[in-house]
C-alpha cells in the first residue's frame, strides 16, 4: 500500500464518519434526553435535504441563507409532531417506537408522491478540490467535516454550559425530580425535538450536494444511524461519534480492498458480534 493511498482512505474514512456522526447525533441526543428512539429521524433528514433542494435549486437562494431557514423549518415541524403525536403517549416506550416507525414510512411514501420518484440534484456550494499529501478531497466533503465538528462542539457547550442545557440534562437524569424543580417536561420535550430534528435537517443540508436526493434516503439513514448509536452505546454522544468513525473507517478501507457489498455485510457482522459480547456498546452505560 502506498502512502497516498493510505492517506486517501483515512481522509475518506473521516469524511464518511462525519456524515454518519451528524446523522446519529440527533438520534442519540433524543435517546439520551427522553429515552425514546425517534425513528422518523430519517424522514426529517430527507425533508431537510428536499428543503435544501427547493431553496437552493428551485428558488435559487444562497446556500448559507438556506442553512438557518431549513433548520428552523424542520425543527419547528419536529416540535409540532412532538406536540400533536408524541405527547399523548409519551410514557409508553414501545408505542413511541412504533409511532416513529409509522411516521417515518408515512413521510417517506408521502415524499414519493409529493416530490416524485426521480432523484433531485443540488448544485454544490463549494466546488473544487483540495490536495493534501497526495490525496484528493473535494471541498464539499471538507465542509461536512468542518460544520459537523462545529455542530458537535456547539451542542456540547450548549448541553454543558447553558441554562437550557442544564435543564435538559436534569430531565435526562430524573424527569420527576426535574419537574419538582420547576423544569417543564413539555418544554424540555419540545426543545429536545427541536434540536434533534434540527440536527437531522443539518445533516440533510450538508449531504444534499454530495449524495443524490430521493425520498428513500431517510430510512437508509435511520438504519445506519441505528447501527452507529447501537455500537457506540445508546444515549452516549461521545460513543456515537467514536463508532461513527469506526464504521466510517471499516467502510472506507473495506470498499477500497474488498468491494462495497461485502463491506456492509462485514459491518453488520461486526456490530452484531460486538453487541453480543458487550451489550452496552462501546461507551454505553447499563440502563435501569
Amino acid at each position: 500500500m502506498e502512502l497516498h493511498e493510505l492517506v486517501q482512505n483515512v481522509v475518506n474514512a473521516i469524511s464518511i464518519g462525519s456524515i454518519y456522526a451528524l446523522l446519529a447525533l440527533g438520534l442519540t441526543l433524543l435517546f439520551s434526553i427522553m429515552d425514546i428512539l425517534f425513528f422518523a429521524h430519517g424522514a426529517m433528514y430527507m425533508l431537510g435535504a428536499y428543503a435544501t433542494y427547493y431553496f437552493c435549486t428551485k428558488f435559487g437562494w444562497n446556500y448559507f441563507v438556506a442553512i438557518p431557514l431549513v433548520i428552523l423549518l424542520i425543527g419547528t415541524f419536529g416540535t409540532l409532531i412532538e406536540k400533536g403525536l408524541f405527547r399523548p403517549i409519551r410514557n409508553d416506550h414501545v408505542a413511541i417506537i412504533f409511532l416513529g416507525i409509522a411516521l417515518n414510512w408515512f413521510l417517506e411514501s408521502a415524499g414519493f408522491i409529493v416530490f416524485g420518484l426521480r432523484p433531485k440534484p443540488v448544485a454544490s456550494a463549494f466546488p473544487g478540490k483540495l490536495q493534501f499529501l497526495g490525496s484528493t478531497i473535494s471541498w464539499e466533503r471538507a465542509v461536512v467535516v468542518i460544520i459537523g465538528m462545529i455542530a458537535v462542539f456547539s451542542l456540547y457547550f450548549f448541553l454543558m454550559r447553558s441554562r437550557l442545557g442544564l435543564g435538559l440534562r436534569a430531565f435526562a437524569e430524573d424527569p420527576e425530580a426535574a419537574e419538582l424543580q420547576g423544569i417543564s417536561n413539555d418544554h424540555v420535550c419540545s426543545l429536545g425535538f427541536f434540536i434533534g430534528c434540527g440536527l437531522a435537517a443539518l445533516a440533510g443540508l450538508l449531504v444534499a450536494p454530495i449524495f443524490i436526493i430521493t425520498p428513500a434516503m431517510g430510512s437508509h439513514a435511520v438504519l445506519i444511524s441505528l447501527l452507529v448509536i447501537g455500537l457506540g452505546g445508546l444515549g452516549s454522544i461521545p460513543g456515537a461519534l467514536l463508532s461513527a468513525f469506526i464504521i466510517g473507517s471499516i467502510e472506507s478501507f473495506g470498499t477500497a480492498y474488498l468491494g462495497a457489498n461485502i463491506t456492509w455485510g462485514l459491518i453488520f457482522i461486526f456490530v452484531v458480534v460486538f453487541l453480543t459480547i458487550r451489550p452496552t456498546g462501546i461507551l454505553g452505560v447499563e440502563r435501569e
Partner: peptide, 13 residues
C-alpha cells in the same frame, strides 16, 4: 433497542 438492532443486523447480514 439492542435486541432490535442486533436482530435487524442479523437479517441484513
Amino acid at each position: 433497542i439492542y435486541f432490535a438492532i442486533i436482530t435487524w443486523g442479523l437479517g441484513d447480514t
